Computed example of a mutant assay.
Amino acid sequence: MVKEVYKSSEEKMNKTITVLKKELASLKAGRANPSILDKIVVPYYGTPTPISQIASIAVPEPRLLTVQPWDSSILKEIEKEILKSDLGLNPTNDGKLIRLLIPELTEETRKNLVKVIKKHGEEAKVAVRSIRREANEKIKALKKESTITEDQEKKGEEDIQKLTDNIIKEIDRIVETKEKEIMEV
């Protein structure tokens, strides 16, 4: 019983790390990277749709992204969503495609990016701690139902805590690596 709780928690915590890595990959580091647009969704015929599913995204130059929708009637919507996003990019719409010039990273931009990275790291840690709390509640419920002994309860909680500590160390390592990458570009 406790093993199932542990395995479930471990899976959820690993998913949290995967999400964090994806979010950090979408942050711009002074170079054009199509993944920075991954989080942007555009209402397309009433359905929120990722840009990558309604347009081709190209990198013609190291600091330029082009977004060419398959249906040019959605161009304005894509432009609007890019402006609304927290990417800080100014799209240029020529009626056929949108150009996104990725600005050089200034010291201030780098510091702001590091703040965003730390924020994502903290959100991941909060999610992990929430998973730990849920796991501990499940273990306590098993003890209350007399399904497990007190020793099994203590061991289960200790194991969940060790898992949590390891995952949080991994989150810190990922955040630190991304910070260095941003500050050294």
Rank of each mutant, 00 (worst) to 15 (best):
K15W: 06
T16C: 09
T16N: 13
V19C: 03
K21W: 14
A25I: 00
K28G: 15
N33Y: 01
P34I: 11
P34W: 14
S35G: 06
I36H: 12
I36K: 02
D38Q: 01
K39I: 05
K39H: 01
K39Q: 09
K39T: 06
I40Y: 03
V42Y: 03
G46C: 14
T47F: 09
I51K: 01
S52D: 15
I54N: 00
S56G: 01
A58V: 09
E61K: 10
P62I: 05
T66H: 02
Q68F: 01
W70I: 04
L75K: 11
K80E: 15
I82H: 00
I82F: 04
K84P: 08
D86E: 15
D86P: 09
D86T: 05
L87D: 11
L87M: 04
N90K: 13
P91M: 04
T92D: 10
N93K: 11
R99W: 09
R99C: 06
R99V: 07
P103L: 04
L105I: 12
L105H: 07
E107F: 10
T109Y: 05
T109H: 05
K111E: 15
K115P: 10
K119G: 13
H120S: 09
A124P: 00
V126K: 14
V126H: 08
A127N: 09
V128K: 05
R133E: 07
R133F: 11
R133A: 03
E134R: 00
E134L: 09
E134N: 14
A135Q: 04
K138A: 14
I139G: 09
